[in-house]
Design a protein around this nucleic acid. Sequence first.
DNA 1: AAGTGGTCTAGACCACATA
DNA 2: ATGTGGTCTAGACCACTTT
Lengths: 260, 260
Amino acid sequence: MAGTDASDRRPLSRRIADDLRAQIARGDFTPGAPLPSERELIELYKTTKATASKVIGMLVAEGLVYTEFGRGTFVRSRPPLRRISAARRHAAHRDAGKPVFDVQAIEQGQVPTREILFVGRGAVPSHSATWLRVATGTEVVIRRRLQLLDGDPAVLSTSYYPLWIADGTLLESPDAIPEGPDELIEKLGHRFSHGIEVFRAEMPSQEEAQLLRLRPGIPVVHMWDVDYDEQDRPLQVAHDIYAGDRHEFSYEWNEEDIRR
Amino acid sequence: MAGTDASDRRPLSRRIADDLRAQIARGDFTPGAPLPSERELIELYKTTKATASKVIGMLVAEGLVYTEFGRGTFVRSRPPLRRISAARRHAAHRDAGKPVFDVQAIEQGQVPTREILFVGRGAVPSHSATWLRVATGTEVVIRRRLQLLDGDPAVLSTSYYPLWIADGTLLESPDAIPEGPDELIEKLGHRFSHGIEVFRAEMPSQEEAQLLRLRPGIPVVHMWDVDYDEQDRPLQVAHDIYAGDRHEFSYEWNEEDIRR
DNA sequence: AAGTGGTCTAGACCACATA
DNA sequence: ATGTGGTCTAGACCACTTT
């Protein structure tokens, strides 16, 4: 117990949190190891339950530790992240006749599954509407599904298809599309000419946290993937929400890219 | 006040938080608008300070609201995000003789500044060491600086240069490098041939949150940019930490990329 | 001075996990 | 049965902002 002497201007909870954080950084608690219980913290730092509980809450919010009800508080371990490479969509699936997600999963020795959450017509939300170049709320075909790896939720994926493409096609059918929506769109006579992928980090909404089974303190990565045809018409907007503690994203470049 | 009737299995704090969240989603509180004060919440929901305070803490951790000491709690507004396009480094700076950060900032009408935090030799941390293909702790030249836009912290940037490149060069000098490190490296006779950019989302450490002046509930995006020469030797590893509420990242592709 | 968020104590009870 | 985290009440004080 260090750094908690006296006349310190930091609040007690902050001092305790800093102390524990330093101990974790020093390796006193290795990943997976239990922190002192709240009752022990009360003893150690001469405080009360509310404060001890708050301290743990701070570390949880930082993503440094997690709690298990009835068991204890543990240092979070950082499992290896699944690498997602961008602008990957078409290159990858062209080889396989399978959805990109499945191809990448199988490459990495994991079993992909999916739960269809919604298929049907609906109003396109604001951000995706901008990418589709339609007004917010325009009716489109929506496919929403949760994609899992070895049974663990990995990506919450929502795709928006304009009616001029999806109307009356299998895209409106609630069944899974074996070859994936991209291949289906090509079969319908459209052609992916160019696209853009846009990312940002956020904290999950309640619903996202629940569906992706995210522990507190874990951010998500939102990705919008927009595909256009030769006439620069948006064919689809895919909005994927990745569990932040299980994914990273990579992009490669070489001299050809620079000097074009 | 809805959804707080009775015999609800959710904890009171959760019910109140859900209630407020729904009201925000409905637009009862618009971005920038104040939430009921904690004392008002105590009245409204017949509870106590600790619980009201916890409710606010939950919403803050979600990044939905923020508090200002002595003023109140307000709905967070989402300012437009600065777009960062990847594999951008060399293409962009080649035109300008300026660091990429400055070029992109000026393009968007903002004033770039930087605070040098550290320049000198040091031990390369584990993740960057992997990318540099050296052992963790190997001595390298490190340049660490905080980059700001219109005075607001935007990126915390740490670059690692192997000694065979940086030894005895301006890269070791604590002054800013007017043309940017990339151009300097090229002047030293090296050539950027290819590279990779890797991203992931995290919650900030205490230090990162402080330097970037991040509000609670805002994640950061870590980006590693690794550049190689023609012989596939890593010339540098740049580790940038972006404030998550002020940036998004984009990548474009077209048919040429697919069919190579 | 009045209102706001931030912190803390003291103590109680509930829900879950484990031996 | 015991130990763990989760929640809550009641009340006090502090620090900051605004009028």
